[in-house]
Nucleic acid binder design. Structure first.
Lengths: 148, 148
DNA sequence: TGTTAAATTTGGGGTATATGCAAATTATTT
DNA sequence: AAATAATTTGCATATACCCCAAATTTAACA
């Protein structure tokens, strides 16, 4: 259990986490509070043992507080990181929705590639769209936009 | 050496190849004709042995004609697939360039995530932009747009 | 409270992607 | 033909996923 985190929001590139870890973080953010292994594994449709391993990884880098047999919860750093991830998803979804894709399509596409879009790109896209408060899949916060 | 290909352009989703294999195919397309292992490995900054392995993989699925110690060349199917890959890159680059990113940034971002954007999304984006003939990184062909 | 049932973790194993090094091989050049 | 350059093969590593079976822990309940 770490009380520090290898990521300080100021130096986030947005490219630190693998696609699956991004999914886990967004899920923990959506659920809020302590989330049980089974809950996660059934949401993500993976074996519980896979969840245990991934959550342990996230805990080892300080994004998650994990108590074995109890559950997992975002740390403060994890929550901030997850906020960025959700914003990124929503901004990209909003952007793509301007090109004739349906809502489901848009979300599906973005879910596939979002992990590879940098924070600085997101900042610029967000700025260029006038800092919209509602994205394709939910509200957008602007606490993490560099370019305001 | 296969004269058939597991991909028929009509059923292409755009998600068949890993990011690195996409790079190889786009490179072979740009270079044209028979390309030597060293040429590829120096362009992509990987060890020649890595290139040999990847090219062999591409040959095994019928996208590349490969003669050991001689070089690699796209098959007809490979050329068509690579055309799609280049178009996808150019369309996505053009799209992103509308959001305040510089040319280099745009190309860099797209290169990171393009492998995860489906052909059907590209078709729609392309259609929505009015089938532009020039993208962010080069010309765009429309032979592969479903929605014309 | 002890026993069972459910949830969870551990350990092992597997696939896919991607990489490099060293040694062996093939091609080219002289 | 011998030397050199290019290339391949075999081996090894690393990351990111994944699942299964066995062991463990927690929770329930009788």
């Amino acid at each position: 259990m770490l009380d520090y985190c290898m990521f300080s929001m100021k130096e986030i590139t947005g490219l630190e986490l693998s696609p699956k870890k991004v999914e886990y973080l967004k899920l923990l953010f959506r659920k809020g509070g302590v989330v049980r292994t089974t809950d996660i594994s059934s949401s993500l449709k993976v074996d519980p043992s896979t969840t245990t391993k991934t959550i342990s990884d996230l805990a080892s880098i300080g994004l998650v507080d994990y108590t074995p047999y109890r559950g997992a919860e975002l740390t403060e750093a994890g929550r901030k990181y997850a906020e960025f991830l959700v914003n990124r998803h929503n901004i990209l979804t909003l952007m793509l929705s301007h090109y004739g894709l349906s809502s489901e399509e848009t979300c599906e596409e973005v879910s596939r590639f979002e992990s590879f879009v940098s924070r600085s790109a997101i900042d610029k896209i967000c700025c260029s769209m006038g800092h919209p408060s509602v994205g394709g899949c939910g509200r957008i916060d602007h606490a993490f936009c560099d370019v305001s």
